[in-house]
Simulated scan of single mutants.
Amino acid sequence: MPKINGNEIRPGNVLEHEGGLWVAVKTSHVKPGKGGAFAQVELKNLRDGRKLNERFRSADKVEQVRLDQKDQQFLFESDGMLTFMDSQTFDQIELPADLLGDRRPFLQDGMTVTIEYYGEEALNVTLPQKVTCKIVETEPVVKGQTAANSFKPALLDNGVRVMVPPFVGQDEDIIVNTETFEYAERA
């Protein structure tokens, strides 16, 4: 695996550090008045979700890990396990539903997701950035309510609550950003 300097760490990089696999969540470069510059890096463990703040000087070497990414199709959920199928080899894999965390409601039947592997171990599931959902409950449209940034709450068909603009009504399809859980546009 390639080694990189501590000041070359960027958000999204996967590193092998202290015997575990960590993803860099945030990085900030600090130049104190006294002493050498360093990178303050917030790391998240890919296996158990622990967080760690670490300082890396430019002379420090860390191993950067490359994860294999495969597009796989979601088939079904059974007993808290999600079953995915590789579209090329038709191999099936079962992963725990808690791997998705609070993004789980946005996973739909037949959806293609990206699963990141370290060797044979699946570490992360990435949903498409935008997903189409139907609004099942929201307040009715009020005529004349055209304030620039007024939003109203809406309940989606997957049980998630989002804020939508006043012109969006019940039983409409909208596109939701799965990273920020925010309304993106009408479908």
Rank of each mutant, 00 (worst) to 15 (best):
F90G: 08
M85L: 03
A39M: 09
K34M: 06
F106Q: 02
T112A: 09
K51P: 11
S87Y: 10
M111H: 05
Q40L: 12
A37F: 10
M85W: 00
G35E: 04
D109H: 14
R66V: 10
K34R: 07
Q69D: 12
F38H: 04
A59E: 15
Y117L: 12
A39S: 11
Q92P: 01
E116R: 13
E63I: 00
D86K: 01
N53R: 09
M111W: 07
D109P: 10
R55E: 05
D102W: 14
Y118V: 10
V113G: 02
F74Q: 03
D71L: 08
D68L: 14
M111D: 03
K44P: 00
R47V: 12
Q69A: 15
R47Y: 05
G119M: 11
F56Q: 01
T83P: 04
I115E: 07
G110F: 07
K61W: 06
G80L: 00
E94Y: 07
E77F: 06
T112E: 12
R57W: 13
E77K: 08
S87Q: 14
S78N: 14
E94K: 14
G80R: 00
E42Q: 13
V113H: 02
T114D: 10
T112W: 05
K34I: 12
D79G: 06
G35L: 01
G110K: 01
F74G: 03
T112L: 09
K61D: 06
D109T: 08
D102L: 13
G101P: 02
L46H: 00
S58K: 09
R55D: 15
A37Y: 06
Y117P: 08
D71Y: 06
E42G: 12
T114H: 09
N53G: 09
D86S: 01
D48S: 00
I93M: 14
K51S: 13
D79N: 13
